[in-house]
Each structure stands twice: as C-alpha cells, then as structure tokens.
Design a protein around this nucleic acid. Structure first.
Lengths: 160, 160
DNA sequence: GGTAATTGGTAGAACTTTCAACAATTGAAG
DNA sequence: CTTCAATTGTTGAAAGTTCTACCAATTACC
C-alpha cells in the first residue's frame, strides 16, 4: 500500500545522479550541523522544538501542537520534554480549558540557552550550506523543496 | 572549534526560506521513503548498506570500507550486521591477507531481498521525489549537492 | 627481533527513539 | 443522562544507536 503500481522504470543516469548527490550531501550536512550544535548541548531535534516553542505567544504551546510543528511524535516529545525539563529549559503547565491537555512552556533559562545557541547555529548553517550557494541556487532550492513539501503533505504519513 | 569566528550575520528572508523549505521537506521525504521500505523489513540505512555491498565485486567487502561507503560508523555497522546475519542476508568471512579484518558477504538470500525491494524503492523515489522535479530541477539539484558534498568532505567530521 | 603506535572489528553500557497500551477527559449520539 | 468513540498526553518495554573500552593483528621504527 505504500506506493501505487510499481513503475518498472529504473532511474536514468541523470535522475540517479540527482538522487545520490542529494541524499549523500544531505546526510553529511545534517551530521555536520548536529555536531556543530553539540557544544550547546543541543541536537537539531531539540533545537527545532525549542525554536518553535520560542516563537509561540508567551513561549507557551500545547504539547500536540508543538509535536506537530516540530515534526516529532507525541511520545518522543513527551520523553524529550522530561530531559529538557530536568535541564531547566522548559516546564509543563496544565491546561484549564481542556484538562487532558498540558502546555509546554519555555523558561527564561531555556530562552537564554537558545538565544545563546542561535548565532552559532546560524553561522553553522552559513558555513556548511549557504556559503556554497549562489543567490540563484538558493532560489532554486527554495522553489524545489517548497513544491516538494506541498506534494508530500498531500500524501499522508501518520505520526503516532 | 566547530565553526570559525561567528559571522554575526543573520539569515536574510531568501536564505531563511531556502533553508526551512529544504530542511522540512527533506525530513518529510526521508520519513516517507523509510515508511515505504518498511514492507520489505528494511530501513534506508540497511538498504544503503546492502546496496553498496551488492555493488562490490563478489558482493563482498571489508567491513571498514562498507562502513565508509554507506556512511555509518563501524560500531553501528557491526551491530547491524549481527541483525542482518540473523536474517540470513549477509555473513562474515575472515580475511586471510589481513587477519585482523573480516569481510561482509552478501548471501543469495540477501541478494534476493534487495532485488525484491529495489523496484518498489525506486518507484518510491519516483513518487516521492522525481515526479515532482523537472529535468532542469534535477540538474540544479545534482549541481548544488555535488558541490556541497565536495565542500563538506573538505571540512572534516570524525566518524568513530 | 622487540616494542610502541595504529588499525580492524567487537562487546557492553548508556542513552534515545519507537511501539503499544493506558488513564483521563471530552464531545457526540441516542 | 448514559454510553461510546476519539483525543490528549504519559508510560514502560523493546529496538536501535552511540560511546567507550578493549583485544588482536599489523605496521613502523629503533
């Protein structure tokens, strides 16, 4: 059920090249960015969670919503929050309007942590990626992956 | 030591857009591809290992070399091999020329497994990615990520 | 040849992520 | 107002990954 009737068509050399270049360089890139963040005791995933949370009004957001935005499962977010809570970056607050729910709230300390990490993370995105792209490249990239994202959001993928 | 002196420059909107589109769509794409492979009891990582191994002469390769090509750590490959060995897809053979070393060898059963998975994986790459790209896009993509890969290989990242 | 440094690979511990089940609440239907 | 399905979020265990230490073989060097 994953894909529809299998197109028997193999990838042609051009496609193959695009695919392999993309997949390999991306892996390297993500690894490098993760490594760069280590100094701040953050992984890309945690950074993403905190970044999203810090954008929310009051730096406060329902767990489910946060999970959705940061593209992690609820279960994973829950576990991760426990760790970040111990680190003093976030805390939980219960929700009065829906008493099943709870809020993730970023603490001042958490805010400080991400503000401190951000410049070096941005520099890292620059060093590792942007510096190697022309303006034209950036536009191409945005165009391609924007379209891709739209298409992929259509095909659904369940998150537990 | 991760990055050199921090460029204080923030990302401009164009850069930000390129970056976020890329990172989010990539995550979705990789997730989708992994999901598509589940039916064959393979992860992208395992597929990559087997694919590399199946390309080697005699479908046989030194562990370290395989780890390098498939971009996994030696330790991880070692653990993974244990699992795939149990599944009957690979076996180990000792190396006479260097008696510290050993070969990873793909079994017939492993070959069958990957041959069986390949068409649907390729179809999946098509459905999820290629079908949404024009020829021009493919060329742009290859160009960008080729360059990126070269640059990133220069900046070193240690793998244990 | 002897011994130190390096390399190839593995193993166990610690940690992270996923999976499946769960309690609590909500909302809708009868 | 009761019942039932769906939603929110958590948990414990299983599966997977990374880290560290290690052994054994090899190579380098005196």
């Amino acid at each position: 059920m994953a894909t529809k009737a299998q197109a028997p068509k193999w990838l042609n050399p051009r496609e193959m090249k695009a695919w392999r270049s993309y997949i390999i360089a991306s892996r390297r890139l993500l690894d490098a960015l993760d490594t760069d963040l280590e100094g701040h005791d953050l992984s890309m995933a945690d950074y993403e969670v905190l970044a999203q949370l810090s954008d929310a009004p009051g730096r406060k957001m329902r767990m489910s919503e946060l999970a959705e935005l940061a593209m992690v499962s609820k279960s994973r977010l829950s576990h991760r929050m426990k760790v970040m809570e111990k680190a003093g970056w976030v805390r939980r607050e219960e929700c009065e309007s829906d008493r099943r729910g709870s809020y993730a709230v970023m603490t001042d300390q958490g805010w400080k942590a991400i503000v401190k990490a951000a410049p070096s993370h941005v520099a890292s995105v620059r060093n590792r990626l942007m510096d190697h792209l022309t303006v034209k490249d950036q536009e191409d990239l945005a165009k391609i992956f924007d379209r891709l994202q739209t298409e992929l959001r259509g095909q659904f993928i369940n998150e537990n």
